[in-house]
Computed example of a mutant assay.
Amino acid sequence: MEKQELKKRLLQYSRDLLKDGDFHDKLAPAVMGYADLLFEYFDVNNTAGREDIQTTHGNAIGTFWAARCIREVLRTQRFSRGLYSSVLKMVNQSKKPVHVLYAGTGPFAALALPVMMLLAPEDVQFTFLEINPESIAKLKEVINLFDLDPYVKNIHQCDATVWDVSSSEIDIVISETMNRALITEPQVAIMLNLASQLPKEVVFLPEEIKVSLCKLNDGNKEPEKIAELINFNKGLMYSIIQNSSLRNWEFADQDVRVNILEDEQLCYMTEIRVNEDNTLNFNQSSLNLPERLKISQKQGPVNLNFRYSLDKKPGFVVKESFK
Rank of each mutant, 00 (worst) to 15 (best):
E185Q: 09
A67F: 10
L83C: 02
K8N: 15
V142S: 03
D43P: 05
T279Q: 11
I183F: 12
E5D: 09
T270P: 02
L129Y: 14
G49H: 06
A181L: 04
K89P: 00
Q297I: 15
N46K: 11
R257M: 13
N132T: 12
V202D: 02
P206G: 09
N275D: 13
R75Q: 07
M116K: 06
V202M: 03
V87K: 08
E141F: 08
N288L: 07
F146E: 01
T127F: 11
R78G: 01
E250L: 13
E185V: 00
P186A: 07
E208D: 10
E122L: 04
M237W: 08
E134V: 13
I295R: 03
L192M: 08
P107L: 12
E224N: 10
K19P: 01
S286M: 04
K210Y: 03
F251V: 03
K95S: 02
S239L: 06
I172G: 03
K7T: 09
D159K: 05
W249P: 02
Q187N: 10
V317F: 08
F251G: 01
V73C: 02
R75T: 08
D263L: 13
W163I: 06
L11M: 07
V162P: 00
R9V: 00
P121H: 09
L10I: 12
F108M: 10
A120M: 10
L182D: 01
V152T: 09
E141Q: 15
L11A: 13
